[in-house]
Each structure stands twice: as C-alpha cells, then as structure tokens.
Design a protein around this nucleic acid. Structure first.
Lengths: 243, 243
DNA sequence: TTGCTTTCCTGATCTAAATCAAAATACGGC
DNA sequence: GCCGTATTTTGATTTAGATCAGGAAAGCAA
C-alpha cells in the first residue's frame, strides 16, 4: 500500500539504503520494531540526502512536513534573538532525530544547520502517523523518543559552574558517540569552541581555558577538534561536585 | 467497552467530574477532539484526587503508569543532586500535564510535589495509547503536547541576565494563567522566591532585589505572593534587551 | 610559497550576581 | 492572643566568569 509517489518505484538498490540495512538501524525509529513493521517503515523513507557543512537544513517558520534522521555528520539547531545573535538549542549526532518542534504549529520552531558535511533521511510526518496508528510499537517508540527530549540536559543546568557544564557536555557527547558505534573516549568535536560556549551559556575564552586546565590535569588530551578522554571518573566527579 | 475496573461503575455524578464537564476542557488532552471521542476519553479518567500542599505526587523511580492533569493548584517537578539539594525542572499549572518523562524507562525521571493544595486527574497511560491508536486526533494531540515540551523555556536561557530571566518568567506565568482562564495581569505566585531562584539559576536575594526594582520602576506591584503586572511592554523589552 | 581569514589560546581587568550578614515581616501551632 | 520558625528584604563584600586585548596556530585561496 504505497502512500507516496515514490514508494512504489523503490528499487532494490534504493531499499538497501533505508532502515533495514542502515548501520544505525538500532537507533532512530526502528528500535523495538518487528521485522515486518520495519519493512513497512522502510517504504516511508523516501529520500536520503547529503547536506554540506554550513548548509541550512530548515529554518524557523519553514513548513513542517517531515522529521529528519541524521545518518552521519552533525547539526546544530538554534533560534536567533533580536540582534541576529544565535542561541544554540542543541546538537544532533548520527542516529538522532530532528524536527519534532514543528508538530504543534506546523512550522519549525528552530533553524537547523549542518556543522559537518552530513547525510540524512527524511521521514514524511503525516504518513509516519498513519503507520503509527496501525503499529502500536511505532506509536510508543515515537512517544518514547519525544519523552526523552523533554528531559533537560544537565550540562545546561543553570546552577552549575562552568567546569560542571563542560564536564557534563563532554560526558554527554562521549555517551552519544558510543551509542552510535564510535569510540567513547576518542572523537572529533563536530562543533567550534564558540558553539560549545554558546550552548553552555559561557564565553568561548572560558571553554578554551577549561579545556587547557583539564588537559594540564591529565583528564583529557585535546588538539584542535580532536579529543581523547582519559579520566572519566574525574569528569564525573567534576560534573557532580558543587562549585 | 470498559477497559478498567472502574469505568463500568462510573455514576452520572462521577461523570460530571470528568473531561466533558471540566472547566478546563479546552486544555489538557481534549483539545480538538470530536464530541464522541471526548465521551470515550471521559471513560478513561478513573480518578480525581486532591493533593495537599507539600505532598508528593510521585518520586523519581516510581513506576510510571499514568499521566497527571492539573485541575487546580500547582506543582513543581525536580531532581535531587548529590547533596540532597533539589534542582527544579518546572512548574505545572491548571490545564497542564505531568509525567511524560516516564514513558521511555517506565519510571518517572523527576519528582513532583504540590506547591499549593491541588486537584488532579489521573490518566492510565497504556489505555490512553490504546485509545489514541483508534483516534488519530488524540494521537496527534498527544504528540503535539509533547512537542511543545521539547522547546526550552527562554526564561532559563543560559546567556540571559537575571533581569531577562525574571521578566521572561513572569510573562510566561502570566500567559499560562491567562490560558487557563485567570487574569493575565493579577495573580498569586504559587511558588516561593527560593523556588523561583532555583528554577532560574539565581539566588533568592537576587529575585527579591529585582522584584523590588521592578516595583520601584512602576513595572509591577508585588506584595508577598500577590502580583499585579502593570507594564507588559516594558517587561517584554527587558526580556529581549541584551545585558 | 604568500597573504588573508578564522579559530583558538592566554593574560589583565571588570562586573553581575553570589555569598555573607542581619533585620523585618509573615505564618503556624498552641 | 503569643512565641518560634520560615520567608523575604536590604546592605556589604567577594568571586566566577565576562569582556577586553594581543598573539599564535591552522586553514585556504591565489
């Protein structure tokens, strides 16, 4: 039962690029779906695209029609305040979904920009809902993903010091990289110091200084964007300790 | 088709207390539901309870089985850090839903406590899902509510000054009170200065001082918990203006 | 290569808000 | 009513992190 123009024309070759053969198939939507459900979901994913570094995926106010799954690369989402400065809302790594904020109003509430050259899957939302109504496991999965997004990031807890925020941020990134199959202790930061600072509500200079201190203390090694985490325990202590 | 023990025994009197006759019926879940759907939803709401000020509604780790709709009063949700200090995640006013954070793991991820004597409706989640699968409008409504919760509160934007945060917080409260039928310009703060400070990542003394300044500037009048907003325009300017 | 731009680092000063301290006011129990 | 406790206000001091400033390293185009 094809519900889009494309579905009925998907070749075997195209199908190989969708969920059931995706190396992130344990993430995104398919988690916990039965094989037969997964195959039906595959038919929904009409388009896979590459977005170059710096390119905009969607902007505030754009019509919301689809969710986006990150296959590789990374995105940031942000709003722009009065004087054009952007306030970064979040970063999005492989296996994660973007665009949920558009559901209520039918328009995206944030802008999304690739911070690395990235590849994505687009998922038509209305058709996804139609499927979800027939697939209890998918319905629950959708709600589950959104429920996770309602929990605030402890890295941006207001009461936390700069040290605590950065430690939380690094541990969070590490966990997410591990989650999508990369090393948890060695990776490239997809974002600039300035973007980290913006996200954490700190000055870029503060990020630089703290990274230098962490390195001097042997907690991690950092060179440009390349980071190696040595002492998780110590990061966790910093994350929790007051002031 | 009663799916709970109670449904089949609901008296007319009890039914008067549920959604279709609730003075908040335009909020919570029923928004946009057709009359017949609404009647079926009513059958789900098995229990209405009163929670006294200071009482705990649920705690982190409690088994998640139901969502909670606030009918009157107010709640705070929070997590407790290492040394027992609580970090307030949010406040919940009449017409708003709590508990979504429990979906993924089946356990609440925050604790919820009444900050005023409150009355609530409890909604069994699994049965709600069963209904949602049959009611596309309810399914969408659920996702829509959750999507709104994924947008961070600008009051707690890290880059914002204390003034900006408090102005945003007051405007946000005002909007929410208006939304559930109360005055937007005159209301009682349901929470203490300390709780406001905690939520906004500031010291209670800072809240006190700022409220005094706002009052001295004629922006508002405040006496204990009772507040009258006089100059919305000026609050909006403060909310936006940098530093 | 050279020059230009962007990103990042490090030090010196400054400031918004925390902390410390103490008084004033409101509230709950008896 | 009264007293004891908790909350709020106001002032004085301190400090974490911002801002200002200059330089070093990396990336990129011609």
């Amino acid at each position: 039962m094809p519900t889009t123009q494309n579905c009925s024309h998907l070749s075997i070759k195209q199908l190989r690029q969708v969920c059931s053969s995706c190396n992130l198939s344990s993430l995104c939507l398919p988690v916990g779906l039965a094989d037969e459900d997964l195959k039906r979901l595959d038919a929904l994913i009409t388009k896979r695209r590459v977005i170059n570094k710096g390119e905009t995926l969607f902007q505030i106010g754009d019509k919301f029609e689809r969710l986006v799954a990150v296959r590789s690369g990374a995105f940031k989402t942000f709003v722009s305040d009065a004087d054009g400065e952007q306030a970064i809302i979040g970063f999005h790594l492989p296996g994660e979904l973007l665009g949920f904020d558009g559901i209520t109003s039918g328009q995206y509430q944030v802008s999304a920009q690739a911070i690395e050259t990235s590849s994505i899957c687009e998922i038509p939302f209305n058709e996804l809902l139609t499927f979800a109504a027939k697939m209890p496991s998918l319905q629950r999965q959708l709600l589950s993903i959104m429920s996770q997004k309602t929990m605030p990031d402890i890295a941006v807890r207001l009461n936390n010091s700069a040290e605590q925020r950065l430690a939380s941020f690094l541990l969070g990134l590490s966990k997410r990289f591990k989650n999508c199959g990369y090393s948890e202790s060695e990776f490239n930061l997809p974002m600039s110091r300035e973007d980290i600072a913006n996200y954490l509500g700190l000055a870029p200079e503060t990020i630089s200084r703290l990274l230098s201190h962490f390195q001097a203390d042997g907690i991690l090694e950092i060179n440009r964007r390349h980071i190696v985490l040595h002492d998780f325990r110590r990061l966790q202590i910093i994350q929790c300790s007051d002031h």
